[in-house]
Simulated assay, not measured.
Amino acid sequence: MRMLMVAVAATLLVGCAGSAMEQARTQAPYKTLTSDKPELNVAQCVKFAWEDEAVFGVDAGAYLQPGKKGGSTVYTRSAESFVDIQASATGTALNYYAKQDDFVAKRRLAALATCL
């Protein structure tokens, strides 16, 4: 029973995050970046960087899932911040979205930049 409740909660979390991400994608990204590294390496690095409790405290959760149009998406709880990462002709393209332009969004962007 406990496992079922955890599975249902996780499904609801992904559903809520998905709709927030779709809404954010209708706007311009907070920041667009590129990397010479492979898409999967960048995605795993961003997930790891966003999980650093020393930097983000208790809000250090990050999740990696396949991207809507290929590639990968790394996102935080409730999709407060997320990045769409896709392979491109010149390397890897990153579109970073943040719900608010605040200190946390800038800190996540800085952590993301270490993975380029």
Score class of each variant (00 low, 15 high):
Val74Asp: 03
Leu12Asn: 05
Lys106Gly: 08
Leu33Arg: 00
Pro66Glu: 13
Asp101Arg: 08
Ala87Tyr: 07
Thr76Tyr: 01
Ser72Gly: 02
Leu4Tyr: 05
Asp52Phe: 11
Pro29Met: 14
Glu39Lys: 01
Phe48Gly: 02
Lys99Ala: 14
Gln44Met: 12
Val8Ala: 03
Ala43Gln: 01
Val8Gly: 00
Leu40Thr: 03
Tyr75Ala: 05
Ala105Gly: 02
Lys106Ala: 05
Gln23Phe: 14
Gly57Ala: 10
Ala54Arg: 11
Ala9Lys: 01
Gly18Cys: 11
Val42Gln: 02
Phe48Trp: 12
Val83Asp: 06
Ala113Arg: 04
Met21Gln: 09
Phe56Cys: 04
Pro66Asp: 13
Val58Cys: 11
Ser81Arg: 03
Ser88Val: 15
Glu53Gln: 15
Tyr97Ala: 09
Asp52Ser: 07
Trp50Asn: 00
Thr73His: 01
Ser19Glu: 15
Ala60Met: 09
Lys47Asp: 08
Glu22Tyr: 10
Arg25Phe: 10
Asn95Val: 12
Pro38Cys: 12
Trp50Phe: 13
Met1Ser: 13
Glu53Lys: 03
Ala20Gly: 08
Ala24Trp: 02
Leu13Lys: 01
Lys68Val: 14
Gln23Val: 09
Gly15Ala: 12
Ala43His: 04
Leu64Gln: 05
Asn95Asp: 14
Ala98Ser: 04
Phe103His: 09
Val58Glu: 14
Glu80Asp: 12
Ala9Asp: 05
Ala10Arg: 02
Thr11Trp: 07
Gln86His: 02
Cys115Gln: 04
Ala87Met: 05
Ala17Tyr: 03
Ala87Pro: 00
Tyr63Val: 11
Arg77Ile: 12
Phe48Thr: 11
Asp36Lys: 08
Gln23Ala: 13
Val8Lys: 01
Lys106Arg: 04
Thr92Gln: 04
Asp102Ala: 05
Ser35Glu: 14
Ile85Trp: 02
Pro38Trp: 10
Trp50Ser: 02
Cys16Ser: 12
Lys31Asp: 12
Thr76Met: 07
Ala93Asp: 14
Gly67Tyr: 06
Ala62Tyr: 02
Ser78Trp: 10
Lys106Val: 07
Met5Tyr: 15
Asn41Lys: 01
Ser35Phe: 07
Pro29Glu: 11
Met1Tyr: 11
Gln86Ile: 14
Met5Cys: 10
Pro29Arg: 13
Leu40Arg: 06
Tyr96Ile: 13
Cys16Glu: 09
Thr90Asp: 14
Ala113Ile: 12
Leu33Val: 13
Tyr30Lys: 06
Glu53Ile: 12
Trp50Leu: 12
Leu109Trp: 11
Arg25Met: 09
Leu112Tyr: 08
Lys69Asp: 15
Glu39His: 07
Tyr96Arg: 04
Val42Thr: 07
Arg77Asp: 13
Gln44Arg: 07
Gly67Val: 08
Leu4His: 09
Ala9Met: 08
Ser19Ala: 10
Gly57Thr: 14
Val46Pro: 01
Ala10Gln: 07
Cys16Val: 06
Lys68Ser: 15
Asp52Gln: 06
Thr11Val: 02
Met21His: 06
Phe103Arg: 10
Asp84Thr: 12
Leu33Pro: 00
